[in-house]
Design a protein around this nucleic acid. Structure first.
Length: 478
DNA sequence: GTAGGGTTAG
C-alpha cells in the first residue's frame, strides 16, 4: 500500500496497530502515525495504547495516554484495561478515579477492567461497589463473568454463589469460573457436583473447565477421581489432555505423597516435561521432605531455566528442612553469586477501602507499635490454646529465639494482628499473600480465629484458606 | 459498506 503511494488513514492504522507483534514494528508504526498527523485521532490513540500494553510496555502505553490532547471513553478504557491486565491493579483503580473526575462515566468495558483490578488486589469492598453499577448491564455476560470471578477470588463465595444462580445467561466461562472458585476455596466436592450439573444442563466443558476439575481433585486429595477425569476427558468431552492437565496430575499425585507415581507419570507422558511440571514436582518433594527427588527436580528446572530463582529457593529450603545446612548454604550462595534474592513475603489487607501492605520482618508500618502489642496479645491468648511456634518453618540456621522472632513477624501475622485491631465487628478479616502460607502461620490463623471468634480468609497465589473456630477450609491439606 | 477497549487456569 505504501509502495503504491497510498496514504494510510485512521482506519488503516487502528486496524494494523493491533497486529504489531514486536516493539520495533510498533515503534515504526507509531512514528508513521505521527508523520501523517494521525496520532491524536482517538481511534488511533486507543489502538496505540492497546498495542503497547499488549507488548508489556506499560510506559509506552502510558506515554501515549499522557499526551492526551484528545480522548474519549475508549481511550480511557484502553489504558485502564492495560494496567488491569498487566497486574497493576492499583494503577488501574487510580486511573479509574481520574477518569471519573474528568467527567466520563464508566461503561461495561471500564467496569470489567476495574473488576479485574479489584480481583488482583482482593478489594472485595470496592468490588461490591462496582457490582452496584453492573446491575444496569444485566445482559452483559463478560461483565458478569468478571464480577463472578471477582467474588470467587476475593473469597466472597456466598456472593459468587448468589450471583451465579441469578445470572440471566451462563456460558462455559461462567461455569468454569464457579467450579474453579469453589475448588480454590476448599469446596472441591461442591465443585465436582457443579461440574455434573453443568454437564446435565448440556453445557460442553472446555480445557479450562477440566483444569478446574482436576484442581478440585488435587486440592482435596481425590486421587481416584482425578485419574478418572484425566483418563476419560478425551473420550467423554473430546478434550485432549494438555500441559496444564498433566501438571494437575503431577500435583494431584505429588500432593498426596505419591512421589514415585508422579515421577513415573512425568517420564511416561507424551509431552516433554517443562519447567512448570518440574516445579510442581519440586513443590511436592518439599511438602513431603524428599530431598533427593527435590534436587533432581530442581536440576531439571535449572537445565531449562538457569536463572530460575524459585528452583534455587525451593532447593535451598529443602536442604534447610532436612537440616543439611552446608548444602543449604551452598545453594543460597549460588543464588547470591547469580545476583538473585528471595522474594520477601508480603501480605495485603483492605480496610476502609484502603490497602495496607505488610512485609515480613518489616516494622515500618505507621501503626507498628500497636500491631506488635496486638500480636503479643494474640500470642498470649493462643498460647493458652496450645500454640507452640513451629520454628522448623524458619529456613535458616539460627538460635531458637532468633527463629521465633523471624516467625513472629511473618507478613500474614502482622496483617492478621492489624486485622483483629481494626476489622469491623462480624466481618471476616481478608488477607492476600504473594507467597504460600507457612505451616506456623496456618496454625496461628486457626487458633486466632478461635480465640477471637473471628473468621480469617487468606488468599495465597493458588488457593484460599478460610479459618473459623480453630479450623481451616483446606482441612490442613494444601 | 470500513476502526479502538473487557471474561475463564497456573
Amino acid at each position: 500500500m505504501r509502495r503504491d503511494g497510498v496514504v494510510p488513514n485512521a482506519y488503516t492504522f487502528s486496524s494494523v496497530l493491533g497486529a504489531c507483534g514486536t516493539p520495533g514494528v510498533l515503534a515504526a508504526m507509531h512514528a508513521s502515525t505521527v508523520k501523517v498527523g494521525l496520532d491524536s485521532d482517538v481511534f488511533v490513540r486507543s489502538s496505540l495504547i492497546d498495542a503497547y500494553m499488549k507488548l508489556g510496555d506499560l510506559d509506552g502505553g502510558r506515554g501515549v495516554f499522557d499526551e492526551m490532547v484528545t480522548g474519549d471513553l475508549v481511550v480511557w478504557n484502553s489504558i485502564i484495561g492495560g494496567f488491569a491486565q498487566s497486574g497493576d491493579g492499583a494503577g488501574a483503580i487510580e486511573l479509574f478515579v481520574r477518569m471519573k473526575d474528568a467527567g466520563f462515566s464508566a461503561n461495561q468495558g471500564t467496569l470489567t477492567s476495574v473488576l479485574r483490578a479489584c480481583t488482583g488486589m482482593v478489594m472485595l469492598e470496592v468490588g461490591r461497589q462496582v457490582h452496584a453499577h453492573v446491575l444496569k448491564y444485566e445482559k452483559d455476560l463478560i461483565l458478569h463473568n468478571a464480577l463472578l470471578d471477582m467474588y470467587c477470588k476475593c473469597g466472597g463465595l456466598q456472593d459468587a454463589d448468589a450471583l451465579f444462580r441469578r445470572m440471566l445467561q451462563r456460558d462455559v466461562i461462567s461455569w468454569s469460573t464457579m467450579i474453579s472458585g469453589l475448588a480454590q476455596n476448599g469446596r472441591s466436592i461442591e465443585a465436582l457436583r457443579l461440574f455434573d450439573l453443568m454437564k446435565s444442563e448440556g453445557v460442553a466443558p472446555n480445557h479450562i473447565t477440566l483444569v478446574g476439575v482436576l484442581f478440585a481433585c488435587s486440592h482435596a486429595g481425590l486421587v481416584e477421581d482425578g485419574w478418572h477425569y484425566f483418563k476419560s476427558m478425551e473420550k467423554l468431552f473430546g478434550i485432549r489432555p494438555e500441559r496444564e492437565h498433566h501438571n494437575c496430575m503431577v500435583d494431584l499425585l505429588g500432593r498426596a505423597g505419591k512421589l514415585d507415581e508422579a515421577v513415573e507419570f512425568i517420564h511416561e507422558m507424551s509431552l516433554d516435561p517443562d519447567s512448570v511440571i518440574w516445579r510442581t514436582l519440586l513443590g511436592a518433594c518439599r511438602m513431603h521432605k524428599n530431598a533427593n527427588l527435590a534436587a533432581y527436580a530442581a536440576r531439571e528446572i535449572l537445565k531449562l531455566e538457569p536463572d530460575d530463582q524459585g528452583a534455587r529457593v525451593l532447593l535451598s529450603n529443602t536442604y534447610a528442612d532436612l537440616r543439611q545446612w552446608t548444602d543449604a548454604e551452598k545453594s543460597w550462595k549460588a543464588m547470591k553469586d547469580r545476583g538473585m534474592k528471595k522474594e520477601p513475603g508480603r501480605s495485603w489487607i483492605e480496610l476502609e477501602k484502603q490497602v495496607h501492605v505488610f512485609i515480613a520482618g518489616d516494622l515500618s508500618h505507621p501503626f507498628s507499635d500497636s500491631i506488635v502489642q496486638e500480636l503479643n496479645r494474640l500470642i498470649g491468648r493462643i498460647n493458652a490454646l496450645g500454640y507452640v511456634p513451629q520454628t522448623e518453618f524458619v529456613l535458616q540456621d539460627l538460635t531458637i529465639e532468633q527463629k521465633e522472632d523471624l516467625l513472629k513477624y511473618h507478613s500474614e501475622k502482622l496483617a492478621i494482628a492489624f486485622g483483629t485491631m481494626r476489622a469491623m465487628e462480624g466481618k471476616p478479616i481478608r488477607i492476600m499473600k504473594n507467597l504460600r502460607i507457612c505451616g506456623d502461620c496456618h496454625a496461628f490463623a486457626k487458633l486466632v480465629s478461635k480465640s477471637e471468634g473471628k473468621a480469617i480468609i487468606i488468599r495465597d497465589p493458588v488457593r484460599f484458606h478460610h479459618f473459623q473456630d480453630g479450623a481451616c477450609s483446606c482441612g490442613d491439606y494444601w
